[in-house]
Write a protein that binds this DNA or RNA. Structure first.
Lengths: 350, 350
DNA sequence: GCAATTAGTCAACAGTGTTGTTTTAATAAT
DNA sequence: ATTATTAAAACAACACTGTTGACTAATTGC
């Protein structure tokens, strides 16, 4: 519903987004946002009154009155984020700047069911929320494996787990935790993390998550793209080798199958080459200018994967593709889940 | 720059978009747009004053005052659209409803250079604009092969043509035609056509254009996705067969190479199967719920391609993927180019 | 005929960003 | 030192958005 409230929320989010990358001045905010200096002044002063921003010194740029520096009060809003893996639950506390300020990891029992999971989550969440003022904690995000529906928070199925068919995870967790909860695919939360932290700089990107599975998070035109059913990013089951090795999905020659086969044989060069080739195809298809690598496999052999992907990037004379490892490391999915919560309060409205 | 003018333009576009699919009432517009009845009334009455809409009868829905039907005055705005193929130039005239109301085709000399092309275009355009009132004709759109930059209208290179390096096609055409010109990739204009005509109904779709090349137009979250350099949709050079047949692009096993090889051998089943498999991978990757098939190859064997794609769609129990042939047939690229012009005037602002 | 119901408009309004002007605080010139 | 110049930021008035609330118009059902 595009009305005045929407407009205000949108511009607030734009301005706040520009403050995440470091101290800026009102003038710079006006230039980068396209708003007039007067509008920026109003917005900024309201945010100062709300305790979201503080003035912190001045910057002199030649003659004239010096510009006033503005700094984001990062701990004005905090959120918890969880990553669920086959054997492990990770919860992090992230602030408005997108920095991880606390972290906890706990093992998950093999083949855990929904009640068991919610209890394990509650234990970690309750421990981590203790030192946080209640009015600062905005909620809990959960990065889960798909297929799921992020709008309703229902997990349709979780591959490799039993008892996870059409589970209303968001509702269950909200009731147990007494906090707002959002649920999204792990690849989506991971790309939310990168987007939240890098802002305008990152408009078109793929985040490649290489673990036991192979998924991508898509950032297209500055927005996380989830597809018609929150299910975009199923990258692992793209056919790359007609009549290739059989895959768990029932088909043959999937990227994931070829990659995992090579990895299982200890053939690192082969494993990275397949990922590099597939990512190159993806970059060509979507014309993104950023690739962010993440996931256990990548973090255990960062140079090999980075080099393999870089080697296969399409050569373009006027805008090279930036390939790198996520600076958030193992936290990226959980941290992104937290930032998903932050973005519900301080991000662009829809 | 999100300001009040933007807000108004946006809501105008939403309302106008809802009138394209047939007669609607103010009440229905309010329901579907999320705006209040009062806001819709204001917008609609302004559009009636502008000659964009007319009241056309009433519809009775039980007790109470009957609803007034509104009809789009389709010829209130018209645009020309051109498709450039290796040997042929096609120009169509499209109206605000997205219907093609006139059409002309002319051969292009082998290996035409930019001046030759602009002259051929001007000849067709001048002939077709003659009967159109000057103030109704909004401009000319050109669907070209990439790589190009749709923002500047510069064609970087045109595969198979010489003399087409960094050609400012938009500027050249604007000077010769004396009309506003927009340039975009053929796959993008084609998907614009589908989006413009089907509106809200079509939010996430891929348009697959099978000609001598194989490209896709991407409609993601209701917007045409062009990528960081207007170059998204390079689908033909996705690897589908490691160590497959060599491709014109220099690599091996590209979808396009495998497809064209099969087609050249007269192996229709093989050709359609490759496309079906590749499209299924794409649908899975992007989680779109609509596939639109277009292009010479598809239109010459519509049933075979449709069946091959449908057969490989992922089976999803709650939201099936709709696969169909474009109703615009051979005109889709040119018509979309025209609608791209219309959307600059009557579409959602950016 | 009259009440009920629904469509549509009119009027007043809150709140957005913009335009135009003034105040504030630096540097540069006298 | 003093003054002029420059640029940042705030202040004031404004145009215009969609919303809220009240009212009128046109139909159905009894």
């Amino acid at each position: 519903m595009p009305n005045l409230r929407f407009l205000r929320g949108y511009n607030d989010a734009v301005v706040l987004g520009l403050t995440r990358s470091g101290a800026v001045t009102r003038v710079e905010l006006a230039e980068r946002s396209g708003l007039t200096p007067q509008a920026v002044s109003k917005i900024v002063n309201r945010m100062i009154a709300d305790g979201l921003l503080v003035e912190s010194g001045t910057r002199n740029v030649g003659v004239g009155k010096p510009r006033t520096l503005l700094r984001l009060v990062a701990d004005r809003g905090l959120a918890l984020g969880a990553q669920v893996e086959r054997d492990e639950l990770r919860v992090v506390l992230a602030d408005l700047a997108g920095d991880v300020v606390d972290r906890a990891v706990a093992p998950l029992p093999r083949g855990f069911d929904p009640p068991t999971f919610v209890e394990a989550l509650a234990e970690l969440v309750d421990r981590m929320r203790a030192p946080v003022p209640a009015d600062r904690l905005l909620g809990v995000g959960i990065g889960f494996v798909g297929p799921l529906d992020h709008r309703t928070g229902v997990v349709h199925d979780a591959t490799g787990l039993i008892g996870w068919h059409d589970v209303p995870l968001r509702a269950l967790a909200e009731r147990r935790l007494g906090l707002p909860v959002v649920v999204d695919k792990d690849t989506n939360t991971a790309v939310v993390a990168e987007s939240w932290r890098r802002g305008e700089q990152l408009r078109d990107a793929v985040l490649v998550l290489v673990g036991t599975g192979l998924g991508v998070g898509l950032l297209l035109d500055g927005q996380v793209y989830r597809g018609a059913r929150t299910n975009a990013g199923e990258f692992g089951h793209t056919t790359i080798q007609l009549d290739g090795p059989p895959c768990v999905c029932g088909r043959t020659g999937c990227v994931e199958a070829v990659h995992n086969l090579a990895a299982a044989r200890g053939d690192l060069a082969g494993a990275t080459a397949v990922v590099g080739l597939a990512v190159a195809d993806l970059v060509q298809l979507l014309d993104v200018d950023h690739v962010v690598l993440a996931g256990r496999a990548v973090l255990s052999e960062p140079e090999a994967y980075t080099a393999a992907v870089r080697a296969r990037m399409p050569v373009d004379d006027w805008l090279p593709v930036d390939v790198g490892i996520t600076p958030l490391g193992d936290d990226v999915v959980a941290a992104g889940a937290a930032m998903l919560v932050l973005s519900e309060f301080y991000g662009r409205p829809r």
